[in-house]
Write a protein that binds this DNA or RNA. Structure first.
Lengths: 140, 140
DNA sequence: GCTTGACCTTATAGTTGCTGGAAGCTTTAG
DNA sequence: CTAAAGCTTCCAGCAACTATAAGGTCAAGC
């Protein structure tokens, strides 16, 4: 099957598939007589695996590891599990960062009248010299 | 003051300050006789504003808008507030995405024995054809 | 047989927000 | 006087693609 069919079935774009090939994340596709890439079902399986792993938050290099384990009959499932648990931690710390941001933003918004006038507590806070009594971080 | 002093006071790096100048986010700094950039207190104030806004989650283009409002005596605080509230929404949807990811990862991990054997539910799930009864998304 | 349009190919550049390094000034400390 | 630190500019690179250009191929319709 041609690349666009493989794209449709894997959920990746054709561009992304070529890109993954170019960085060696998937093996080089075999070519038809016309020079087009030609994919088999098992190629699509690997592509779908990647699509899922990426959507689940794994980076390219982590996908490379996962794919290596996927292809390795000698793997230990504990190894796979630890990659996943490590990723959970990373995702959780990202969540915490974003929550802190959201709290700061909400605090800023709550202090601003949001009217026709030019005075704005948000701008005041953003320009405040660190160390002045603003307590922005505390989300009061 | 020289750039490294401005960097220290604003919380940005010298590189970042030069970068902001190069993309027109801050006005071109005036130069001393030796060709070094020379910053005033009010320059530092703008830089600090940017440092805060970036840390609070605003992108470069959003910072440009905020800075425009900061410098505009005719602004309406409602305009600033709506920028902030829009950002809150963006941050919240990012949080939701990451939480979904985390749930998926936890579900994956919980199904994997994590032992010496090669069988691994995580790899099975990641390679499952969409539409088969896995219910990964539902985080069961 | 020819055209049209969809699909394929490669190669290159752009995205975001910086960071790092090279090569070459000036200034400062010993 | 010399060495180190600090400044300058410009170019490359990071992640993970996406967009664009310029071209080859294929299937359908006339």
């Amino acid at each position: 099957m041609n690349i666009s069919e493989a794209a449709k079935r894997s959920g990746l774009s054709s561009k992304t598939i070529r890109y993954y090939e170019s960085i060696g994340l998937v093996k080089v596709a075999k070519r038809s007589d016309n020079g087009y890439r030609d994919y088999s079902e098992s190629d699509v399986e690997a592509l779908r695996f990647l699509q899922r792993a990426r959507a689940t938050g794994f980076g390219i290099e982590e996908c490379r590891q996962l794919l290596g384990l996927y292809d390795n009959e000698q793997r230990h499932s504990s190894h796979v599990k630890s990659l996943v648990l490590e990723k959970v931690e990373q995702v959780e710390s990202q969540i915490a960062e974003l929550q802190a941001m959201r709290n700061t933003l909400n605090t800023l918004a709550s202090r601003c009248a949001g009217d026709e006038g030019p005075h704005c507590a948000i701008l005041d806070e953003l320009s405040t010299v660190s160390g002045e009594e603003s307590n922005l971080e505390e989300g009061k």
